[in-house]
Design a binder for these strands. Sequence first.
RNA 1: CGGGGAGUGGCGCAGCCUGGUAGCGCAUCUGUUUUGGGAACAGAGGGUCGCAGGUUCGAAUCCUGUCUCCCCGACCA
Length: 514
Amino acid sequence: MSAIRHALNTKREDDFAAWYQEVISAADMAEESGVRGCMVIKPWGYGIWERMQRLLDDRIKAAGVQNAYFPLFIPLKNFEREAEHVDGFAKEMAVVTHHRLITDGEGGLIPDPEAKLEEPLVVRPTSETIIGDAMSRWVQSWRDLPLRINQWANVVRWEMRTRMFLRTSEFLWQEGHSAHATADEAREETMMALEMYRAFAEEDAALPVIAGEKPENERFPGAVETWSIEAMMQDGKALQAGTSHYLGTNFAQASNIRYQNREGRETLCHTVSWGMSTRMVGGLIMTHGDDDGLRVPPALAPFQVVILPMLREKPEDEALLDYCDKLRAAIAGQTALGEPVRVLLDKRPGKAAAKRWDWVRKGAPLILEVGGRDMENGVVSMLRRDTLWNTETGKPVFQNPDRDLCAQTVPTILSDMQNGLLVEARERREANIRRDITDMDALAEHFSREAKYPGWVEVQWSKPTGDRLAKVVETLKDLRLTLRNVPQNSLPADGTCIFTGEQAAERVYVARAY
RNA sequence: CGGGGAGUGGCGCAGCCUGGUAGCGCAUCUGUUUUGGGAACAGAGGGUCGCAGGUUCGAAUCCUGUCUCCCCGACCA
């Protein structure tokens, strides 16, 4: 077995945080902007986000939800209406107080004191209040319900500590908002969104997730119930990858969203909100990345196949390019995962071998290198990103299929790869979940070990509330652990609560989290 | 926001303690020879040392302030 020369300098097992950052820069996904907590998303990173948008947006529209757009700025008083909401977000809001700059006389600019806003505007951290305002105008009658809206937008939360994609001051997301006549209907919508996220994560992003309800202490500020999908990263930590909230009538009350029912009585609506963000890109990296960079699931890859002609800057290049272009056209004519295959013929000058490693780091699923000898034999040299190395020789594994057959097999390979990434991630997750820990000592022991991948623990608990829950949360905090969610469809509880010793009510996941 | 570390050509770093002509590696450009698996050699270009003040004849270096990034914590749908 020969040593493999990986495409990255940092290995996951040596320094996971450093590895994560190296993937982002080596795969050319994003970079620091110089503005605190804000990043520049580069074409490859943004292309992946665009794919996520496309696929999730298709699901949103298929569910009958319509897109709209609401303002970036929210009057401060909108926020004051929902007390818990204020508490939850007040500490992390960007505020606009002036609308004009003047020179300070020393070559600089300062806000013009004369141009102070009567009422400050906050930059939206989420849009419940401003959309609630609109909903209060749009909803009059029971016939206007349900009202189901989604917006794709940027939001700002002034976070203390930021990490690219995982927690940035400004991030991109979609937020769905709906108003319903009844609690049952609103809860059904909450679950619809949760299921949509689960399906998107698993089918499109190849990210296995646990869908479940967040405990009381982890609820969205102002929500009655918060549900999430949780994914396990390769370092064993949990990442909340999407949330769906049943808001009861709290926000309807605050924004005055009422309708006249069939009996003519004024009635409060029940509202719902749900969101998924660019954080998903971070989850993708930490789930599918390896020591050679990112591996993009084919459904999300901006380019699923990259063709690299081995150009020599000589007259014969023309014939080679022609050969490659026929290959490109044949592949582009194929359908994989329900869409035309996205293929790039990378004609940039430069050595094919150097470009190959660029695309490996970016995680393009299939790389096809084509040289003069391939052309003579009517074949291509194919490299699969998911099975890159021959561990015996320490060299990349090239296959040499016939050019025309190759085009036809691309869809199968891509769909195998899509499925393979999901299976691999799911197996890794299952191998790192413990379900046999029943007392706090064992829990502490499990997470105190030097183990690189402590993973998650599913425990049984009595679902305490209020102060008793606060005590549990405090205990877990000492172990740097958090309650993740109570999975749907889990086995009923049959033991005692690991925290209180009482009869258990349900099962809940405990993990370190991002 | 607390503790720690760091900002010097595109990237990674040395120089700072003890002030005196801004350096190295990679990358880039040009040339030559190579080239079917991450090329070699030679030459060249590129930086007012994060920013703003101060001390000094002289500041990357010393002092003050400030911004940004990384790690740990606190915080965080």
